[in-house]
Amino acid sequence: MTASTSKGIVYPQSTDHTRLWEHLQTLATTADSVIFGNIDRQIFTSSGTWTRPSNAVAVYVRVQAGGGGSGGCGATGSGQAACAPGGSGGEYAEGWLTPSTAGASVAVTVGAGGNGGSAGANAGSNGGGSSFGALITTVGGSGGSGASAVTSGSTAASNGGSGGTGGDFRLPGGDGGNGQVISATAIKFNNGGAAYLSNMRRATGIVATSTSGFDGYSYGGGASGPSLGASQAAVAGSNGAPGIVIVTTYTA
């Protein structure tokens, strides 16, 4: 006679004359089916379908949403400046799944980075959400606002992406940095928001002429905002970085 543990390992429970080595062989054979032996890793930098490998024991999923684009700046006159805030970073989540919960295949969505706003005081677009089916979802970072020419003032940035579902751990994206104008100088703070899988994108710094900012860092970082000094033409914002989904399956 035999019995099984809750994890499926068969062990002897017998008073017959089965030899000891036969019991040990049964125990070793069944244990092989629930002990990690190999790793299958599927990395998605674009949307696709995850297929569960054979002999799966556990599935570990990491999901990063895309970062927001920064807004553009309107043209400035004499004694004016403009400084658009940075886009925010995308949300991150991760979790462990049993093979039966994950299923045989799952639709994977990888969020695109948000586009920078067109030249002028035009907002950047939000980053796209990434997901592992409906099991783990994340929200992309928000696009930064556009900035008009002023003699002094601040343009507030948006909060990082948040509000997804599922998983065992999640972290909102980092906020974008505010755009700040002092006199006819556009001064920094308009960094792109960080994400769990990316660094913050540096601000454009004190600008006497014109800069369009910097695209967000992979994966999921927000773009830093553009800045204009006095008497400059309108400038567009920069793009957020796309997300990524990493699925690691531990197999017997």
Results as ranks from 00 to 15, higher is better:
Val110Gly: 02
Asp32Pro: 02
Phe132Arg: 06
Ser162His: 09
Val207Leu: 02
Gly37Ala: 09
Gly111Lys: 06
Gly237Ile: 11
Gly166Leu: 02
Gln42Gly: 01
Gly113Asn: 03
Val139Arg: 08
Ser100Phe: 06
Gly111Cys: 03
Gly133Phe: 01
Ser14Ile: 06
Tyr219Val: 10
Tyr217Met: 12
Glu94His: 01
His23Gln: 11
Ser70Asp: 12
Arg19Ala: 13
Ser142Leu: 15
Ser148Pro: 06
Ser125His: 05
Thr137Asp: 07
Val247Leu: 04
Gly161His: 09
Asp40Lys: 11
Gly8His: 02
Ala121Lys: 00
Thr155Lys: 13
Arg201Cys: 13
Ala107Asn: 15
Gly163Ile: 08
Ala31Pro: 03
Ser210Cys: 11
Gly192Arg: 04
Gln25Asn: 12
Ser238Glu: 07
Gly113Val: 08
Ile35Glu: 02
Gly79Cys: 11
Ser47Met: 10
Gly128Lys: 02
Gly216Ser: 07
Gly173Phe: 09
Ser227Pro: 03
Val150Asp: 04
Ile35Arg: 13
Ser125Tyr: 08
Gly146Thr: 05
Val57Ile: 15
Asp215Ile: 09
Ala157Gln: 04
Gly69Cys: 04
Ala147Trp: 00
Val139Gln: 11
Gly140Arg: 03
Phe214Leu: 12
Ala241Trp: 02
Ser145Arg: 12
Ala194Pro: 05
Gly225Thr: 06
Ala194Leu: 11
Ala123Gln: 08
Gly37Ile: 00
Thr211Gln: 13
Thr137Ala: 06
Gly144Thr: 07
Gly160Leu: 03
Ala134Trp: 01
Ser131Arg: 11
Gly222Met: 08
Thr30Ala: 07
Ala121Gln: 02
Gly167Ala: 10
Pro53Trp: 08
Arg62Tyr: 13
Ser100Glu: 12
Gln180Glu: 14
Ile136Leu: 00
Asp40Trp: 06
Gly225Met: 05
Asp16Asn: 15
Thr5Ser: 15
Leu27Ala: 10
Gly37Tyr: 00
Ser212Thr: 14
Lys188Phe: 14
